[in-house]
Amino acid sequence: MSLNQATRVAVLLSIGQHPVTARARRADQDARALELALQLNHADVIPLHVGQLNEHNEAALRSYLGMGISQIKLIGNSDILLGLEQGVRESQANIVLCGSRAETGEGSGLVPYLLAKKLGWPIVSGLVSIEKLDQGSATLLQALPRGQRRKLKVSLPAVLAVDPAAAVARQSAFGPAQRGAITPQKLSSIEAVSGAEVKHNSALHSFLWQFQPAKKRPKRLKIIKATSARDRFKAAAAKADASGGKVLQGVSADDAANEIIKLLLEESVLNLDGHL
């Protein structure tokens, strides 16, 4: 048996939420994580979900099944973190793949880190692809800003959190989604919800946490620190928002170029240190 065949990948799947209609769906990043797992050769993929199965989320869970996995292990009745930890341990996985952030609730992106800590495994976030699996280690590509990439080697077992730039998840097909199984798991050690675990449970915070629909953040004004009263007045009186763009007609090519460069520099997308 080759070493690669021993790779067991637990994929953490949560219920997502469509950004516009808030309808339940497969979470985009989790689906990408599953996609990465499915593309690994000779790896056993163990999809895990902690939560209850109900009519509200069944379709969303099934749409993971529609990606071509035969079952999802359902860990019900549990603190999420504890459930995940036990689920991962009992599945004997040596890689955990998950999204970086949940689409519902707090979506703080802390869960992968908390899980890694509980498992005592290293965590890499920003994962875009797994290049190679060796004995005890994995070679990964990590997303950097502007589409750049960095290569990392991480010792296994490890938690890997997928970047939104990772490959788009394959389409979910109706047939396999309907036929796939969502199998409740009996975990041996689940009842031990100790006091320490509950600490992350928001209900116990002294301050009441409140969720509201996201407010539009105000655009920052360019502050004028004018010295004269007249300027301050003018600045205050000026209209708050620009309407329409600037159209330059009949200017020379050079002037046009200057305008463009000015804007590029303002937006800091033009790097003058680059090669000529």
Partner: peptide, 29 residues
């Protein structure tokens, strides 16, 4: 589409939009 999930190009996206927003371009219903 139903068995293999192989609707090419923007097909999958359009279908996802239809499911989630009831219109093919994902506008707010």
């Amino acid at each position: 589409t139903l068995e293999r999930g192989q609707t090419p190009n923007k097909g999958a996206e359009v279908i996802d939009n239809l499911i989630a927003t009831d219109n093919p371009n994902g506008f707010n219903p």
